[in-house]
Amino acid sequence: MMDIEREKELVSQAKNNAHAFGLLYDEYYSQTYSYVLKRTASVNTALDITSEIFLNALKNIGKFQWRGIPFSAWLYRIAAHEISNYYRANGHRQISLDELVDFDIPDEEQAEAQTKLEQQADFLAVHSVVVRLPLKYREVVMMRYFDDLRLNEIAQRLGKSEGTIKSLLHRGLEKLKRLVKSDATFQRPEGF
């Protein structure tokens, strides 16, 4: 993780300097893509949303005000917004990067990434249930179990108190129990 002072300096430079923004991109691309993939369980969708996140960040970095919260937290808010948009549109998105570039990603590279994802049956099975939670519970559960964050880290990222996060997590898990119990079609994945 980048030192906070270094990050602050880089963010300041990135408002006017493409190279500095590139360094921020290098630092946070993997985490951002990983975050999105865990929520969408689709490589193609994760790539699209990741592109939108960084484009959004690029457009708005001039307005970013450093208030002691890491840049990553701002980035995650953008990410959460883009993912939320994705779910609201039921998975149908218009990507606005056409005017910049047509991504030329080799089919085999993308297919390989998707295959690797599909091999992780445990994750996909759990994901298929968690994703049905209401957004406010879903995000807390995903951060806790998919991203492996501690409660105080989730609180910081979401801008809420730790007490609120505990409560949301508890209610989210209760809802998950009801979903699993009532889900007559819940198939026991291989390995369960």
Binding site: A18, F21, G22, Y25, D26, Y29, S30, Y33, S34, L37, K38, V43, L47, T50, S51, F54, L55, L58, L97, L100, V101, F103, D104, I105, P106, E109, Q110, A113, K116, L117, Q120, D122, F123, A125, V126, V130, Y145, F146, L176, F192
Partner: peptide
């Protein structure tokens, strides 16, 4: 399973490169 879930996310390297160029 929820408690022990781990996902190897990997990356699509060409997307990472091309997005960088596009952003710049």
């Amino acid at each position: 399973k929820l408690e022990s879930i781990k996902l190897e996310t990997g990356e699509v390297a060409s997307h990472r490169r091309q997005l960088r160029v596009a952003l710049l």
